[in-house]
Write a protein that binds this DNA or RNA. Structure first.
Lengths: 216, 216, 216, 216
DNA sequence: GATGAATGAGCGTTCATTCAT
DNA sequence: AATGAATGAACGCTCATTCAT
C-alpha cells in the first residue's frame, strides 16, 4: 500500500548518503522493508526511481520557496526571504543537496535537474531585471548574480566538512546556519547597494584599482 | 613508468567523465592501453588510484595559484588574480571540478579532499584577516567570505548546463569565461568596499531594511 | 470465458514466435489484454497453458486431416490428400510447427506431443500395411515411410529460411507451397510405384548397385 | 588453459539437453568446473558461446561429410555415403541436431545456422543438377529433393521418441540406425530411378491418377 | 614491468507464482 | 472473474581483485 512511499523514502536517504551508483537496490529494499522485486514493480528501473526521488524533492522545494516569492515586502525582503528559505530547505533536506551536487557534475540525470532548476532561475532573473535595468547585462547581470548567490548558499553545505575543520565549529548547527544566513543577507545588501548605485550612475569606477574596463 | 602515467591520465579522464564508481578498471585499462592487472600492480587499489589522481590535481592547483598569491600588488589585485587563476584552472581541468564536486558530496575521499583544501582556505583567511580586522568575525567573517567566493567561482562550472539553457549561450566558451571573470572581479570590489567601510564604521546599518541586528 | 480464449490465442502466438521459455506470462498478459494473475487463475501454470495450446492445435489438426482420411478415392488420392491437408495446416498455423519443432527436440512436453501424434501415425501405418504387405517390414516398412514423408512435409517449413536463401524465392508463398505439394505428390507416386513393384516381385534388385542385401 | 574447451563442451551438452534459454550460465559453469565469470571472460556473452558451439559443430560436420563427397564412386554411392555419414554424425552428436532443430524454428541464431547450411545445400544441388538436368526444375527439382532427403534423415532423429512408441523399439540403437540407413538408401534408389526415367522421357504420366499437371 | 586467466561477490533485473481483495 | 501488490529464486553479467607466469 504505502510500500511505494517507503521505497521512495529509503531510496532518497541512500541516494543522499552514498550516491546513485553506490545505492544498491538490495540496500533500498532492506531499508524500506520491501522486496527487491517490488522496487522494480513500482518504479521499473533504478534510474526511474531516482527520477521520482528528484521530482519529489523539487516539488517540495517549489512549495518551500513559493511563500518567499509571493511575499508583499520590499525586494530585499523577498530576496533575503528566498535565500533564508533555501538555506532552511537545504538544511532540512541534506540528501537533496548531495544528490544534486553529485548528479549535476555529470550523470544521466543532468537534464532532468536542469529542467527543474530553470523555472526557479528564470523567476529570479525576472525579479532582478524588473527592479534593476542594470542587471540586464554587464558584470552584475542577473544570471551571473543568481548563479553566484546560488553558489554562496549551496557551497556552504557542500563544503561543510571543510568549513568544519577550518573554523572548528559545526557549520550545520543552528548557530552555524544562523550565521550563514546573516552573512548571506549582508551579501544581498552589498549587491543591492551596488545595483542602486549603478542605476543612478551607470558606469561606476572600481573602488581602488581604477583601470578596469566595463563591457556588456 | 610510462604506463603508470598513462594509467593516471586515463583514470583522471574517466573519473571526471563518469565518476569514481562508474569508472571501471577495465575502462581505465582500455583507455590507457594497459592491462587491468597492471593498474593494481602500480596502484594496489582503485581507491588509491583515485587518491593519486586527486594528489596530482591539487599539486597542479597549488602551482597554478601560487603566483597569484605571491604577487606584490594590492590586495585587490591579489584577490582578483587568485580568482582568475582559479577560473582558469577549473576551465582547463574540467575533470578536476567534477571529481571534487562529486566526492565532496559524500564519499570515501572527503577527508583527503578536505586536507588538500584546508591550506588554501587558511591562506585566504590569513590574507583577509590581516588586511581587515572586520573579517575576524561577523557577517563578513573571512571563512564565510572565502566559502562564498569559492562558491561563486565554482558553481558557475558546476551549473554550466543549467546556465547554458538559462542564457542561451555557452558558459564555458572564452567569452563566457571572460564575462564570468568580470563578474567575479566586480563582486570582489563590492566585498572590499564593504570591508573598507566597515573598518571605518564597524556597525553599518543595512541599506534599506534598517531593523537587522548584527551578531558575532 | 472470453478472456480465457484471448489468453489462449496470445499464448499460442507467443509460444510460436519465441518459444515456451522466452514467452513470458507478462507478454502473454499484455498481448491478450488480461492480467498476469488471471492467466494463473485460468491455467494454473505456464506449462498447463502450453499444454492447452498444444491440445487445441492437435484437435484442429485432427479436424483438418479427417476429411482426407475419410475420402473414398484411391489410396494415392487419400495419401496425396493427406499430405496436401498437412501442408495447408502447417502453412495456415505457422506457430504450431515451430512449437512442435522446438519441443520435440527435448522439453517437458515431448510425451504430450508424442501422445497426440501416435494415433495419426498409427492410422497411417494401418493404411499402408493393409494395402501393401511389403510395408510390414524391410527398407520400405510403413513406420519408416511415414516418418520420412512427415519429414519431407515438415522440414520444408522448418528450413524455410534456408530454402529461401537457397532458391532465392519465398518458400511459403502460394507458389512455393503449390510447388512443394507437387513435389510431395511425386514422391508419393515414387513410393507407391516401388511398393507396387515389390508386391509382385518381393525382392527387387536395386537399380544400379546390385550388391545390396535386404533385411527385416 | 583448457578451461575454454571444457566450457565449450559443457555448453554444448547443456544446450543440447535443455535448449539455449534453459541452459543457464551457472549450470554450464558447474558442469565445466569453471567459474561463472570465466564463461564471460572467454565468450563475452551466452549468445556468443552458443555461436561458438554452433561453429564448432558445423566445422566437425563439414569434416565428417567431406570424405563422402570426395569419393570417386558412382553418384549413388556418393549420395548414399553422404546420407550415411549424416546419419552417423547425427547419431554421434545428438545435441547438435536438437540445438539446430530448436533454433531453426525461430531464434536469434537462425541466420548463423542458415549460413552454415547453405554451402552444404549448394554442393548437393550442384551434384544433382550436373548429373540430371531433370533436377533443374519441376517436381523433382534439386532443392526440393535435398530438403526432402535432409528431412528424411533428420526427422528420424527428431521424432525418435514418437517412433520409439510407434514401433516399440529403440530407434537410436545400432539396429535402428542400420535399418534407417537401409531405408534411406532405398529412397535414394527410388529417386535415382525416377530421375533416370525422366531423363529418357521428360514428362512421365503419374502411375495411377493420370490427371496431374506438371509445371516448372 | 607486464599479462592472461581466474574468482567470489554482487549487480540490476526478470521470472512464474501467490494472495488478499 | 478479475486485479494490484507482493515475493523468492534465479537470471546474465560485471566488478575489483588475485595469481602464476
Amino acid at each position: 500500500m504505502d510500500a511505494k512511499q517507503r521505497i521512495l523514502d529509503a531510496a532518497d536517504q541512500l541516494f543522499g548518503e552514498v550516491g546513485l551508483d553506490a545505492a544498491t537496490t538490495r540496500a533500498i529494499a532492506d531499508r524500506s522493508g520491501a522486496n527487491k522485486a517490488l522496487i522494480h514493480y513500482h518504479f521499473t528501473t533504478k534510474d526511474e526511481l531516482f527520477g521520482a526521488v528528484l521530482d519529489r524533492y523539487y516539488a517540495q522545494l517549489a512549495a518551500a520557496l513559493g511563500p518567499a516569492l509571493a511575499t508583499e515586502g520590499s525586494l530585499r525582503a523577498r530576496l533575503v526571504g528566498l535565500v533564508d528559505a533555501y538555506v532552511d530547505f537545504l538544511a532540512g533536506h541534506r540528501g537533496f543537496f548531495r544528490i544534486v551536487q553529485r548528479e549535476i557534475a555529470g550523470g544521466r540525470h543532468v537534464d532532468r535537474i536542469a529542467e527543474h532548476m530553470l523555472p526557479l532561475f528564470r523567476a529570479g532573473v525576472a525579479l532582478l531585471t524588473q527592479a534593476y535595468p542594470a542587471t540586464r547585462a554587464g558584470a552584475l547581470a542577473a544570471p551571473s548574480l543568481l548563479v553566484s548567490f546560488y553558489g554562496m548558499v549551496a557551497t556552504y553545505f557542500g563544503y561543510a566538512p571543510v568549513v568544519a575543520r577550518l573554523v572548528g565549529a559545526e557549520p550545520l548547527s543552528p548557530e552555524g546556519l544562523a550565521h550563514h544566513k546573516r552573512h548571506l543577507a549582508r551579501m544581498v545588501d552589498l549587491m543591492l547597494a551596488a545595483l542602486e548605485a549603478e542605476t543612478q550612475a551607470p558606469a561606476p569606477a572600481p573602488p581602488r584599482n581604477g583601470a578596469r574596463r566595463r563591457q556588456t
